[in-house]
Design a protein around this nucleic acid. Structure first.
Lengths: 199, 199
DNA sequence: TGTACATCAGTGAACGCGCGTTCACTGATGTAC
DNA sequence: TGTACATCAGTGAACGCGCGTTCACTGATGTAC
């Protein structure tokens, strides 16, 4: 008599990412869904559905959909920043580390297209002056530090700034062209192009 | 007696872009709306509303919404291509012309954010092999010709290609960073950065 | 010139859809005495 | 140990919304004889 065996809860045939911390599960599911969806195609209801929870449960943890998107953006930005720092460290810093961080930037974009776009297009909810605290802000700090370390110490402010924008533009443009399918993903090409971003 | 004066049709208080060629009016209205809207926020109904026509009238000229978007993309791509060619010509071609076309690329993106994104992210309805016929395809041909003209004539295929990707990435990245508000729009900065894209 | 008919651009009502969000609720868990 | 109560995470029905698209239609314009 199968129906009498209630020592095991069978009804969870639908996938359940959720074990304990629903907020974390929602964020994880959101990041996962963004691998195969546009940000605009990601609905609050779908995230909830994926976790195996009612749509309204989300409102226990986020005031609205926008807040959930901010959380995804924040988590994604931290992942990107950590990967870059790690790559730069492993390559021994300097010019090689700077280039390695650039390659990681492009690879991250390729692996997380929608998340990458979300990170780049999201203005933080607080003041824009808190730039340092945002995902993009922390990646930018890394960039500025790298530029500062590679330029001669007497380089003036304008040169520093335009060097940083140059390097960022190059790597960002390659990433975006790959995401939009205008340039084929190719590790060799990435390394070659990114090498041109090192001051 | 105002209501008896029917020699003039008064009821067109709502704006009417539409005079004759509805298809052209729809495209014009769509391009205009894209200056203040995301592509995802542009609805077929709104375009029709703007022109002053019922939503269903659109289906006389386009099989569905996607076809309307393709038309916007095509028109936008042609505008971009023409501007670039014109700028290159006026600058006398060569290195200066190449740089001028790059600046136009960034300025166009800044002036038409959503349209620029649409152009770059749209895969043409036909075969991808028809690349030359697409909006991006024609901009790309200009780019390749420019690179070919500036490189030494014996440069091999790999160098040509990576030079082209390098130049495009740089300009495209700057454009996207400006659109996303990560880099401030600044003519001086544009010229300085774009200069770095000339082989 | 008049009449009958075909063509065709545009109309307005209606459809089903999935969405974000609200609401009153339930049932499990912790706490005070 | 038992009882009364508060807290709180999650539920399911319901809302209004604007959307893309369909449908049968109208009324103006052109064409054949």
């Amino acid at each position: 008599m199968i129906e009498n065996d209630n020592s095991v809860n069978i009804k969870s045939a639908k996938p359940r990412y959720h074990h304990g911390d629903l907020r974390a599960s929602l964020v994880a599911a959101g990041l996962d869904l963004l691998k195969s969806r546009t940000v605009d195609d990601l609905s609050l209801r779908e995230v909830a559905r994926t976790v195996g929870v009612s749509a309204t449960a989300v409102y226990r943890h986020f005031p609205d959909k926008q807040a959930l998107l901010y959380a995804l953006c924040e988590e994604g930005g931290e992942q990107l920043g950590r990967s870059q720092i790690e790559a730069a460290r492993q390559s021994g810093g300097g010019k090689k580390g700077f280039g390695a961080a650039g390659c990681v930037y492009v690879r991250f974009a390729h692996a997380n297209p929608a998340l990458f776009r979300l990170i780049m297009s999201t203005k933080p909810p607080g003041s824009l002056l808190d730039g340092e605290l945002t995902a993009v802000g922390s990646a930018m700090r890394l960039l500025r530090e790298g530029v500062a370390a590679l330029l001669p110490p007497d380089a003036d402010h304008v040169v520093r700034r335009s060097t940083a924008v140059h390097a960022w533009s190059l790597v960002h443009g390659l990433a975006m062209l790959i995401l939009d399918g205008q340039v084929e993903y190719d590790e060799g090409m990435i390394e070659q192009v990114v090498a041109g971003s090192v001051p």
